[in-house]
Design a protein around this nucleic acid. Structure first.
Length: 322
DNA sequence: AAATCGGGGTA
DNA sequence: TACCCAGATTT
C-alpha cells in the first residue's frame, strides 16, 4: 500500500530543495572521508554545532590516512564540544580499518560500510548516497517525520510506523538517478519546515498533498467552530507530538549523573599533555572537592566504563587518554 | 524493547 | 521543566 506513487510530491520536494536548501559544508563535497566525518558528527547533534567544529577537525585530520595514523587521544581532543565521545573512538577505528583492509579506498556497498564501527543503518546509507551518489534509502529522525506526516497523517493520530515501512515508501518515491537530492531534500524539509515542534505548513511545498497538514487544518477548523458556539476554550493548542525515537533521561538531574562525570573526566584528561597519565587518587579530588577515599570504588567503576569504551587507557592506578 | 552514551539549544 | 537533535551499540 504505497498511496502516492501517482502524485508529484517528489518533484515538488526536489524543486523546493533546489531553491531553499541550505549551503552546508558537506554538501559541497563527494569525498567519502569528508562525508563520513560529517555524518558521524551529525549523529544526534545539531547542524549548527557541527558546522562550528567540522572545518577544524578536517584541518587537523585532512585525509583518511591522517586520521588512521592519529592517536585515539588526539582524536578525542579534537572532538571536544561534540559529545558522545565514543563516536570519536569509532571514527578513528573505522579510518584504520579502511586503510588496513581496503587500502584506503572506501567500499561502496552499504553492507560493507555497515560493518565499520560506528556506522549503523543510517550512516552506512548516507555515505553510499552522499559520497557515491547511489539511489539508496535510509531514514533519520527528520526523514521519518516527513514521510510519516505526508503519507500517514499527524503524529498523534497513529502509532509510529516501523522503519521497514518508511524505507519501502521512500524507495517507491525516490526519483531514479536522484538519490542524493532526494535524501538531502527529505532531511532538509524535516529540519526547516516539517519540524518536530512547530511545523510551518504554510511555507511547506507539500502542504497541498500532506495528510498531516490536512488533518491539522480540519482539527483547527473544528475547534474554531466549537469556539464560536462557546463550546470550547481557546486554550487548547493542538499538540504536534513527536513520534519519539529518542529517549530522555527525564526529570532526574543531569549534573552529578554518571554521564556527567564521564564527560568531566574526559575534559580533565584533555587538558593533560599527550600520554600524561593521572593517578586515580589525584583525579578524584579534581573531579569533586568532597572526594573521600571511600569514593574510590565509585571512581574505579566510572573509569572502568570509560576504558571499556576505549576512551581512556587504564594502567596501574593511573588513567590517560589512549 | 530498553538503556546507555554528551551537551547545548529552545519554548 | 520538557523536548529535541542527520544514531549506534549493548543488554
Amino acid at each position: 500500500m504505497i498511496p502516492s506513487l501517482l502524485t508529484d510530491m517528489p518533484a515538488q520536494l526536489l524543486a523546493w530543495f533546489a531553491a531553499y536548501g541550505r549551503d552546508l559544508p558537506w554538501r559541497h563535497t563527494r569525498d567519502p572521508y569528508q562525508i563520513l566525518v560529517a555524518e558521524i558528527m551529525l549523529q544526534q547533534t545539531q547542524v549548527e554545532r557541527v558546522i562550528s567544529k567540522y572545518a577544524a577537525f578536517l584541518a587537523a585530520f585532512p585525509h583518511l590516512e591522517a586520521l588512521a595514523a592519529a592517536s585515539v587521544g588526539d582524536v578525542i581532543r579534537h572532538w571536544a564540544g561534540l559529545g558522545y565521545n565514543r563516536r570519536a573512538v569509532n571514527l578513528q577505528r573505522s579510518a584504520k580499518a579502511l586503510v588496513e583492509q581496503y587500502g584506503g579506498q572506501f567500499p561502496r556497498e552499504v553492507a560493507l560500510l555497515r560493518q565499520l564501527p560506528g556506522l549503523g543503518p543510517y550512516t552506512a546509507g548516507a555515505v553510499a548516497c552522499f559520497a557515491f551518489e547511489q539511489d539508496v534509502v535510509f531514514v533519520d529522525t527528520n526523514m521519518r517525520r516527513v514521510l510519516r506526516r505526508t503519507h500517514m497523517g499527524a503524529d498523534e493520530a497513529t502509532t509510529a510506523p516501523p522503519d521497514r515501512e518508511l524505507l519501502r515508501l521512500s524507495a517507491a518515491l525516490l526519483p531514479a538517478g536522484q538519490g542524493w537530492a532526494w535524501n538531502q531534500a527529505l532531511i532538509e524539509l524535516g529540519a526547516l519546515r516539517c519540524r518536530a515542534q512547530r511545523p510551518t505548513c504554510p511555507q511547506c511545498p507539500l502542504q497541498s498533498t500532506c495528510r498531516a497538514s490536512a488533518m491539522w487544518r480540519n482539527a483547527d477548523q473544528a475547534l474554531l467552530e466549537r469556539m464560536e458556539q462557546g463550546q470550547a476554550r481557546p486554550t487548547t493548542p493542538l499538540r504536534r507530538a513527536a513520534e519519539g525515537r529518542a529517549s530522555y533521561r527525564s526529570s532526574e538531574p543531569f549534573v552529578g549523573s554518571n554521564r556527567w562525570y564521564r564527560g568531566r573526566i574526559i575534559d580533565l584528561l584533555r587538558d593533560e599533555p599527550a600520554q600524561q597519565a593521572v593517578a586515580l587518587s589525584e583525579l578524584g579530588p579534581r573531579l569533586r572537592a568532597d572526594f573521600r577515599p571511600s569514593d574510590m570504588p565509585w571512581l574505579e567503576e566510572l573509569v572502568a566504563g570509560l576504558a571499556r569504551d576505549g576512551l581512556v587507557f587504564l594502567e596501574g592506578g593511573t588513567v590517560r587518554l589512549p
